[in-house]
């Protein structure tokens, strides 16, 4: 099963945020509001565009999520990097010497 959520960067500090079920924005993907159909995805983007106009976020777009062994996770590795942060020691990511 595949779902969409909306992600963007917060205007004030550029941090990665997700559109939530109560039409707010959260740094936690768990709070993200998901869409299962094209119509629901279009609604998500429309809500996100209103937040752009309100000066809350910048450049929203749909992120595809897939069932990853019982929990939903972003399909694309770029979105996983946005979610978890840089994968090296300095920012608390995985240890040096690991690529994957």
């Amino acid at each position: 099963m595949k779902l969409d959520i909306v992600s963007a960067n917060r205007l004030t500090d550029g941090r990665v945020v997700y559109l939530t079920r109560d039409d707010g924005w959260s740094e936690s993907i768990i709070d993200g509001r998901s869409a299962a159909t094209k119509e629901e995805s279009a609604d998500l983007l429309a809500d996100a565009e209103r937040a752009v106009e309100a000066g809350i976020v910048v450049a929203p777009y749909l992120v595809s999520m897939a069932d990853d062994g019982g929990a939903f996770a972003p399909l694309h590795f770029r979105e996983r990097i946005r979610l978890f942060g840089p994968k090296h020691n300095r920012d608390g990511g995985q240890p040096a010497g690991r690529v994957a």
Partner: peptide, 12 residues
């Protein structure tokens, strides 16, 4: 990514 590759090469 570039950084993890650089790190892995420098470790090797």
């Amino acid at each position: 990514r570039s950084i993890p590759v650089a790190q892995a090469i420098s470790a090797r």
